[in-house]
Amino acid sequence: MNIKMEQNEGVVVLFVREDRLDANNSEELKRELHRHFDSGKKNLIIDLAEIHFIDSSGLGALVSAYKNASLMHGTLKLSGLQSQVKSMFELTRLYRVFDIFSTVDDALLSYK
């Protein structure tokens, strides 16, 4: 999985450089996110701007990371949701769970 990482004042930003997040690659993302939490990073932003298709497995990977963040008293925020991804968050009511921002910059501002 192609993921670019940046750090900004204690916040890790992960840019997921894939067009799909589905049952074929969601486990890889899940492992990557858990690796960051295991290394002590507590505040993550995941930018999904390049993801144009997500399925229930992809949502599951994000839920798993959200739960991990909560356990560690950290945060997991999302940015850049495209149309189909937004629809899936609405259908599964996960938009009520996650803090979702239009852009990474907006998500970073929320930590100030």
Binding site: G60, A61, S64, T92
Partner: peptide
């Protein structure tokens, strides 16, 4: 009580 599985059939 969120779980990371079980959304496929619901969808």
């Amino acid at each position: 009580a969120l779980t990371d599985k079980g959304r496929g059939i619901f969808i």
